[in-house]
Simulated scan of single mutants.
Amino acid sequence: MSPLLEAEQAVLGAVLLDPSQLQQLGWLAPEHFGRPVHRALFAAMRKLHADRHPALAVETSVPLSWVTDTVVEAGRHVRGLTASHAHSLISACPRPGHAPVYGRMVLEGAIHRSITEHAIRLHQAARADALQGDVEGSLRCADVLRDVLTDLARRWGTEPRPVAPDTPPAPSPTAAPAPGWATGAEEEQVLLGVLAERPRSMDEVVGWLRPDDFVDPARGEVYRCLGALHHRGEPADRITLLWEAQRRGLLADGTLSRDQIAALCDGVGPGSAEWLGEQVMRSSVTRTAAASARAIRALAEDEALAPGRLINYALHALGPLDEVRTRWQAANGHPPPTPPAPLPNGPPSAQVHAALARSAPRPISPPSAPSGSIPSSAAVRPPSRGHG
């Protein structure tokens, strides 16, 4: 049994023993539990607590009806739940007073699991967009992932901010996609030919298209050479482009060849540089989204990574997609989004409350009762409360 599963059982057992523990677990939600039966039980406890179950008013011992009513309420959403399962959860709780710590473990596991799931969805959306020639699904999933990271940071009690990890967990966003992805290589080739044949067309794309947007690094270097000629106001043709490539060492190291440059400059038909550039940008958006998703998933699957760092590293991994997205919007005539205003007085009170609730010291409970009896919950308030 994994430590995370034991933590889920322990926090449920603690609340079954002492429903007042829910007051210290306001930052924990049913969806944070991995197993459906655990989600149903915690949701049932919260509902009974909100409905002011009679067990909440008892000061000496918790009536057995708290357990049975919880099982009945949860049984409306999952099948096969019995009272014996609830009592096994009670036995799995070493110290009821440690419920906030157990809950923190559950939340930590939920953060890793949720980020992994949303990273997978982002990768799937990027693959679908790449094959369909679209970007909206990728950008929409990226927005959802960012909202999830922000919500998880609030629940964990930390400030969401991009932080670069010490060691990159995945290849850079410009890495070549896996076989089967639509890459727009043909559009790249035609675009370079148009720019070499009609240098004035560079004005249509130079403001938002970058060499890293090309799937082939060699074609990206050709675009860089054309951009350098354009920036210096020098004419662009087969000879000047070949000379610029030589000056940059691209011929010497084998990145480019004379034949490649000659093929770009000869036999180019009509074409719109702006339209072709948008196709290259579209491919760049989906590739970058997929690379960001792979990086975030690799981070989330590292169980040793603390939740605060995981959230901030994941936000940093979305940075390249934000940069490409801004240029994509510029290419399509959309204004860039307004960044959120900085917080004037530090993190919101909800974040501070969540952090304090998870880390506040609790009195140490006495040793658990012998096997066959219900553990005491003296860690919350005297006298000890048990089911009667």
Rank of each mutant, 00 (worst) to 15 (best):
L5E: 11
L5Y: 05
E8D: 13
V11L: 08
L12M: 10
P19K: 14
P19L: 14
Q23W: 11
W27L: 08
A29D: 08
A29Q: 11
F33G: 08
P36L: 02
P36V: 04
L41A: 08
A43Q: 14
M45Q: 14
H53E: 10
H53P: 10
V58W: 05
T60H: 09
S61L: 12
V62N: 06
P63G: 06
L64D: 12
L64I: 14
V67K: 06
E73T: 15
A74V: 12
A74F: 11
A83C: 07
A86R: 09
P96M: 06
Y102A: 03
R104H: 02
G109F: 04
H112K: 12
L122Q: 14
H123V: 04
A126L: 01
D129E: 11
A130E: 09
D134L: 04
V135H: 05
L145C: 08
L145Y: 03
R161W: 04
R161P: 01
P168N: 07
P169I: 01
S172L: 15
A175R: 00
A178R: 14
W181K: 08
W181H: 14
L191R: 08
R198N: 09
R198K: 05
V206E: 06
G207S: 14
P211D: 03
D216Y: 00
R219A: 04
R219Y: 09
A228M: 12
H230N: 13
H231W: 02
G233T: 13
P235W: 00
A236D: 06
I239K: 00
E244H: 07
A245F: 05
Q246R: 12
R247F: 01
R247Y: 00
G249T: 07
L251D: 10
A252R: 13
D253S: 11
T255F: 00
S257C: 08
S257E: 09
R258H: 15
Q260Y: 00
A262H: 09
G267F: 05
G269E: 04
R287L: 10
S292G: 12
R294G: 13
A295V: 11
I296R: 05
A298N: 07
A298K: 07
E301Y: 00
A304Y: 00
A314T: 14
P320D: 02
L321Q: 05
L321N: 08
E323R: 15
T326Q: 14
Q329G: 00
A331T: 03
G333N: 05
P335F: 09
L343S: 09
P344C: 13
P344Q: 11
N345V: 08
P347M: 03
P348D: 12
A350D: 05
Q351C: 13
H353S: 13
H353C: 07
A357M: 03
R362H: 10
I364E: 06
I364A: 08
S365N: 13
S371G: 09
S371V: 11
S371P: 06
S373P: 03
I374R: 07
I374C: 13
A379L: 09
R381M: 10
P383D: 03
G386H: 11
H387F: 12
